[in-house]
Amino acid sequence: MLTLTDVRKTFNPGTINERKALNGVSLSLDDGDFVTIIGGNGAGKSTTLNAIAGVWPVDGGIIEINGKNVVGLPEHKRAAFIGRVFQDPMTGTAATMEIQENLALAKRRGQMRGLRWGITKKEREEYHELLKMLDLGLEDRMTSKVGLLSGGQRQALTLLMATLKKPDILLLDEHTAALDPKTAAKVLELSDKIIEENHLTAMMVTHNMAAAIKHGNRLIMMSNGRIIYDVKGEEKKKLTVDMLLQKFEEASGAKLDNDRMLLSKGDA
């Protein structure tokens, strides 16, 4: 499904700000895998997702989606295979466009866009039903501008948009980090539901260790641009937050110095 082989990226090479963000990341996902990714700040979690999405070209390595090497494809072309939800609720939607127009844009991800109407009557009915499932009352506000929605509503909508046209890979980049705990839990629950119902292959970056353990069938820990721990199946189910912290110290030889991560080890 998705295979990364020795993917490397250095930001600002040759300058005082040079930073090796990805130091040879290799990873192979099976169809239907739901991987959670944890690690300290600057570990390379979001960078890995951005490398897959093609936000910038990588320095080296292979990224294969369904057996096709996509490293040469720019972001908008890779979008044909990838659905994304971002940390900032503002990033995933167009604020000045209507809810239904945002959905119509997402519906055509990876397709040629021509001079047909941007949204059809049949689509409107389809979106009405889909929005009903979110249970946020958005189905009655389809012509409202997305800018009027709350952060949680926008993330739920972005999630729907990312999966409206079934993606080969769904990338969730700390998509609940900017939400209050209750809303975050709701969006996570929705993510689980959508991933399961559509049998999606997904990667989710999170700072919340308990959430990383609870969700998905596989867990990856990153440090200094490398994958330092990879666990799946039954073994993953047995994990606890303390075990993860210990693993981190063992593998990276350092204490996990991320306050935010320690603080959020509690509730899922």
């Binding site: 999405a53 720019p74 972001e75 908008h76 072309k77 979008a79 044909a80 990838i82 994304r84 971002f86 503002m90 990033t91 995933g92 939607t93 167009a94 604020a95 000045t96 466009m97 127009e101 119509a104 844009l105 997402a106 055509r108 991800r109 990876g110 397709q111 866009r113 021509g114 001079l115 047909r116 109407w117 941007g118 949204i119 948009m161």
Partner: peptide, 28 residues
């Protein structure tokens, strides 16, 4: 008519949020 078409939508999305537009497969 033009800004109601699929292509018109891409221009509106580009002007509003280029990151979102690219993530939706639009050549901004």
């Amino acid at each position: 008519w033009f800004f109601g078409t699929e292509y018109g939508f891409t221009i509106r999305a580009t002007g509003c949020n280029a990151n979102m537009a690219r993530a939706q497969g639009i050549n901004t």
